[in-house]
């Protein structure tokens, strides 16, 4: 945590979150949200130093295979089974500026839609060579990349016959704790996206489309892996033109 990859001094508070763009807390089509959604209004306060600051992780925490889910859990000389893909993109802020040195964590089911988790009982088989987690830190221009297998769709007990589209979960740190974000990436052309109650918690079709990664033919590696591109946008920071002076000074 102490090696500072971010040399730029950033002190501005963040753009207010557009909570009509994000899913609301209460979205009854997704049943678990019914009892897990606050009913009182959120208390609003412009960001203080407690939210403007946040943890930044050094590249030293990243192991050689951390961004290779095909091999980071596999036995020596073996690989996870499934469609081999590369997922890559940039982390930008709302002002379009790259966000360097931020940690991303990913997790997903295997090619058959089975998660390696003790609570998971789906009858599709575990892949002995697939763990399902990975992480990366963005470079100076905000780029990240990892290699994995395309996850399968999987059924879940929400409606009688609900299935999640193929998806990869993303956890993203920014430079401030108020930028903290968890989301899910979907795959271009998957007809299941538009049937999913979790996708459907997002009210705006354009916001949903922001979570769909296009096939990136240009970055596909012949005879090896196809590529998908997924850019992530975090809250922007205000310019600090008038924010360096405390009120009353």
């Amino acid at each position: 945590m102490s090696d500072r990859t971010n040399s730029k001094l950033e002190t501005g508070a963040f753009f207010a979150r557009d909570r009509a763009w994000h899913p609301p807390a209460f979205a009854p089509g997704y049943k678990t949200s019914v009892l897990r959604s606050p009913q009182r209004a959120l208390l609003s306060l412009d960001g203080t130093i407690s939210e403007i600051t946040g943890p930044v992780f050094g590249h030293s925490i990243i192991g050689e295979l951390d961004n290779d889910l095909i091999h980071n859990f596999a036995k020596h000389g073996e690989s996870a089974i499934g469609e081999r893909i590369i997922v890559h993109g940039r982390v930008l802020d709302e002002r379009g500026r790259p966000v360097p040195g931020v940690l991303l964590e990913f997790w997903q089911a295997n090619a058959g839609g089975r998660y390696r988790h003790k609570k998971e009982t789906y009858l599709a088989a575990i892949d002995p060579n697939f763990g399902g987690c990975g992480r990366a830190i963005t470079d100076d221009e905000g780029h990240y990349a990892f290699r994995t297998v395309r996850p399968g769709a999987y059924p879940w007990p929400n409606g009688v016959n609900d299935w999640r589209p193929a998806h990869i979960h993303f956890s993203v740190f920014g430079h401030g704790f108020a930028q903290r974000l968890i989301t899910q990436m979907y795959f271009e052309g998957d007809p299941m996206i538009w049937k999913c109650p979790i996708v459907g918690t997002i009210p705006d079709k354009q916001a949903i489309e922001q979570l769909i990664a296009p096939l990136d033919w240009g970055n596909t590696i012949p005879m090896d892996a196809r590529a998908y591109k997924f850019d992530i946008v975090l809250r922007g920071r205000r310019s600090t033109l008038f924010e360096n002076r405390l009120e009353g000074n």
Binding site: P23, S33, D93, R95, G96, L181, I182, V199, L234
Partner: peptide, 10 residues
């Protein structure tokens, strides 16, 4: 400006 990537459940 860009729009923030929408959140989804963990």
């Amino acid at each position: 400006y860009l729009k923030e990537t929408p959140s989804q459940t963990a």
